[in-house]
Amino acid sequence: MSDQHILSVDHLTMRFGGVVAVNDLSFTAERRKITALIGPNGAGKTTVFNCITGFYKPTSGSMRLTHDDGRNIQLERLNDFRISKLAKVARTFQNIRLFPGMTALENLMVAQHNALMRASGLTFLGLIGAPSWRAAEKDAIAQATQWLDRIGLLARADDAAGNLPYGDQRRLEIARAMCTEPALLCLDEPAAGLNARESAALSELLLSIRAEQGTSILLIEHDMSVVMEISDHIVVMDYGVKIAEGAPKDISDDPRVIAAYLGADEDEAIAVMESGT
């Protein structure tokens, strides 16, 4: 049944000139589950993200998003902002892209742009200060406040995002993506640069998002402790192709995965594994 899959990627290929960054990749992400996309640097993971979130137009292949109500959306037919607006796919970036000169609260308000635009009657109702707009704005602030509370940044709501410590910026970016009320949340290396304590807090946050909002999560991550702890399903890429797929414990035992990470061939990897156990 395709209904249990929120995202199915079929034969996705992305070429840049002569370079094939992603080659005939197929995988699925299950609804209300956390799917991790792992692989060595340069494996093409971020390129996959950029295709899914509309920043690149794939050379070939299809990406189908199925909403709860059974509505199907072909992501390759939508471009940039429509993916977030219509398909409800939100993302974060490997190198954090907050609005540094705006406060944490403002960042979360901007994320609710489309809903607020409707509420403000495309600005006109807002300009005259209509009561319906005031109520909507109040709700939006409440929603943002609730997220700030959840990521532990309520006390810093009025500080510029650019002034926050690195780990807080990472969490704020996730909260900002969640404020668009996505069906699928794509996180590009959310644990990069975090210490062990912050990584643990991140894992907790992601698990709670899955449990409470029911958001499906697609995750690129190098921090294996995070990946192994929270993922329901792992897809491993190397040189633009999928080399393995499965539950965390299957992946951690897969010689091909270890070979890809160690840069050795399979036999050597098996030898390493055996000597280790």
């Binding site: 979130t53 509309g54 920043f55 940039d80 902002f81 429509r82 993916i83 977030s84 607006k85 939100a90 993302r91 970036f93 892209r97 907050l98 609005f99 540094p100 000169g101 705006m102 403002e106 308000m109 901007v110 994320a111 609710q112 742009h113 489309n114 607020l116 635009m117 403000s120 600005t123 807002g126 300009l127 900002r176 993506a177 668009t180």
Partner: peptide, 25 residues
């Protein structure tokens, strides 16, 4: 103080992030 104005400023701050948030730039 309206969403449109906040989107303007967000656009000045980071256009790519705006697109990722579903803002029609």
């Amino acid at each position: 103080h309206l969403p449109i104005g906040r989107a303007w400023e967000a656009l000045r701050e980071d256009e790519v992030a705006c697109r990722a948030l579903g803002i029609n730039t």
